[in-house]
Design a protein around this nucleic acid. Structure first.
Lengths: 143, 143
DNA sequence: AACGTAAATGAAAACGATTTTCATTTACGT
DNA sequence: ACGTAAATGAAAATCGTTTTCATTTACGTT
């Protein structure tokens, strides 16, 4: 996983300014282990660093996604929620539907499936989307 | 796959009225082999059956989803696009990113993956989302 | 075949999420 | 400390979706 320090270095390197707002958003997303919709990020950020606009949240999320530091989830929360990219390479997510916690996993057997599908359908497969949704240990115990 | 006739019978049976609009929308979705965002459905429907409102499209898509006749795609087109449910049981989609064609596949090895993840993370897994995105034979040839 | 009724529709308004615009502020190299 | 281009915030615009409500329609009953 890329840590906050490294991200800041890369931002500098690429000529992006290190603003109070970007620090705050990075800090918040790094700290959280959930997948967060833009509005969630806004709320969380403003608790610790008041006065940061929603527009800036959107712009920063867009930037961090473009640079590959965060990635999207499709199931659960909202159809467009973000979380830190913890594993740098090819990986997928396991989402808790109660606390929005995210667990990454990298070892997927989909290559075989992909090859089989390519053979059977003559598609040239470019990408795949895999997410598991469940309830984590802690949330199950609380219910 | 459930055909148009069967769907109409089930609608009647459950007390839903068979309106011009519902017929038109069913006809259009059944005919198409792509995944369609609500706006796409609206456009297609109105080519053949003019004068059907977008609101009705939304309501009918909601109904057909609730009854399980159509299902959603998350990748590609829009984060919320619909297509006929062709296989009735557990299945997944392979989407063409150019013509929006959809191919269903049922045999996935995810049970094993699910079990492994359950063991490793102590999540109780409720569902999974799997989609492959690629370019189909025809679209590749055209480029 | 006409009637009555509840359900379905359409138009407009409301709504929520996201994007654009533009004037002001800020980070950072000089 | 200064200058400049980039970043921000507030407001407006835009887009997709939902709600409201008056009108229309499908369909069971006479």
């Amino acid at each position: 996983m890329v840590n906050r320090k490294e991200i800041i270095d890369i931002l500098k390197l690429r000529g992006y300014k290190l603003t109070r707002q970007r620090r705050a958003i990075l800090d918040t997303i790094t700290r959280s282990h959930s997948h967060l919709a833009p509005a969630d990020v806004y709320e969380k950020v403003n608790k610790r660093y008041p006065g940061i606009g929603l527009v800036t949240i959107y712009r920063t999320l867009e930037l961090l996604t473009r640079l590959g530091f965060i990635c999207e989830a499709h199931s659960g929360n909202s159809c467009r929620s973000y979380m830190m990219r913890r594993s740098s390479g090819h990986h997928h997510h396991l989402l808790c539907s109660i606390c929005y916690r995210v667990v990454d996993f990298t070892d997927c057997d989909l290559r075989q499936m992909e090859e089989r599908l390519t053979r059977q359908t003559d598609f040239e497969i470019d990408s795949h989307l895999v997410e598991f949704v469940g309830r984590c240990h802690d949330c199950r115990r609380k219910n």
